[in-house]
Simulated assay, not measured.
Amino acid sequence: MPAVAQDKPVTIEDVLEIVQRQQAEIDALRTELDATRQGMDATADKVAESEEKIEATGDFVESLAAAAPGRSKTSIGGYGELHYNQVNSDAGDSEEIDFHRFVLFFGHEFSDKVRFFSEFELEHSLAGDGKPGEVELEQAYAEFDLGNNIAARAGLFLLPVGILNETHEPPTFYGVERNDVENIILPSTWWEAGAGVRGNLANGLSWDAAVHSGLAIPTSGSSAFRVRSGRQKVAEADASDMATTVRMKYTGVPGLELAASYQYQSDPSQVAGDGLDSGQLFTAHAIYQRDRFGVRALYGSWEFDGAAVEAADADSQSGWYIEPSFRANKNWGVYARYSDLDAARAQDRFTQTEFGFNYWPTDGVVLKMDYRMREFDLPALSLSDFDAIDVGFGYNF
């Protein structure tokens, strides 16, 4: 090795120093390798722990999914309303406060195609002998899907007539009291028992048809030929003569609803030969909402055949109203309503003008106030013309 011979001779100390440096490098590499292995072990432990958490979360979600259908199949809802009325007339003044309605809804889905709905009501807070109120079953029916756009129902249900008969929760309409046309001409709330079919067509058209129990209108006494007095409320009702109701509805334009209903009953008194032979109801309504402005209008009329009803000048009974409104914001709205009625009894023949406001502090709760002015058609009832102030509270959920 001639080249080495020319350099400084390598000693044993130099060799030992080289070996020590190499050993230190090896020890450092071993330390780094051990740290890496420990990190990998910790990472593996964390991965295993995360997998356990994910699996536990999945099991919990699956348990919720399994339990949720059982909870959601049955639903509960309701509504109620409190009224204060101050009426002033030449015949006398009166003041009254009344919890008019307390209602509970119960629904249940038996399957994707079969469901049940019911409505249970207490009127005027107290019911029983000598009490002013009633406990009533207003709905109890099952609905069956027959296809994508058609369903059948059977049981006790609200008839498809007018605006308020099917949708009458207090936050959904203006005025403390329900309008008089849909009280006297259309005797809302009006339910019957039977079977019906409903369907949806193209372009916003829908239809309803039902065969059901009918009215039993009295033909004598103070309520003779009064339609509202003919409701049997499916309480051991006389079913000698059934009735048929059909409706067409159009909602193909945003904010617009147009509907018309027709009902026929061959003997609306359920008594043959009493001078009330047949009855036909026709009603039509329009609802239009554009931005803050809205309007509702409804017309309803009955045509009866029979010697007795014609002699009493009650064979044609009708009424209509128009109601413009303005929603200032989500909380406040004002309205005005003009109604004209010509029904069986003298006290059911009048015109009425009213205006007022609704205040919705939150969804499902409403406070109301209105002022009414009623004038009767007959001069003999002029002393009964009245002005009234109404204040109300209502809710639904």
Rank of each mutant, 00 (worst) to 15 (best):
M1G: 15
A5K: 06
V10F: 05
T11M: 08
E13N: 15
R21K: 15
A24K: 06
D27I: 04
A28T: 12
T36S: 08
S50N: 12
E52H: 15
L64A: 12
A65D: 15
A66T: 13
S72T: 15
K73R: 12
T74E: 08
G78H: 07
Y79K: 13
G80E: 09
E81L: 11
Y84N: 02
V87D: 14
I97A: 15
D98R: 13
R101V: 11
F105G: 08
F106N: 06
H108P: 02
F110K: 06
K113C: 02
V114S: 05
R115S: 13
E119I: 04
S125E: 04
S125I: 03
L126V: 14
E134R: 10
E136M: 00
A140Q: 02
A140C: 00
A142N: 15
E143W: 02
D145H: 15
G147E: 07
G147K: 00
N149W: 14
N149Q: 14
A151Q: 08
P160V: 01
G162M: 00
N165H: 07
E169W: 14
Y174H: 14
G175I: 03
V176L: 07
E177G: 05
N179Q: 04
D180T: 05
N183I: 12
P187C: 10
E192T: 08
V197I: 07
L201S: 06
A202T: 10
A210T: 00
G214M: 03
P218W: 00
T219M: 02
S220H: 00
S223M: 06
S240R: 13
S240E: 07
M248L: 12
Y250A: 04
L256V: 13
L258Y: 02
D274Q: 00
G275E: 05
L281C: 02
I287W: 09
Y299P: 07
S301T: 14
F304C: 03
F304E: 07
D313E: 10
D315K: 06
S316C: 05
S316P: 01
I322E: 07
I322V: 12
E323P: 07
S325D: 14
F326N: 01
F326H: 12
N329L: 10
G333M: 08
V334L: 05
F350S: 01
N358S: 08
P361A: 14
G364V: 03
M373K: 11
F376S: 10
L378R: 14
S384D: 12
D390V: 03
G392H: 11
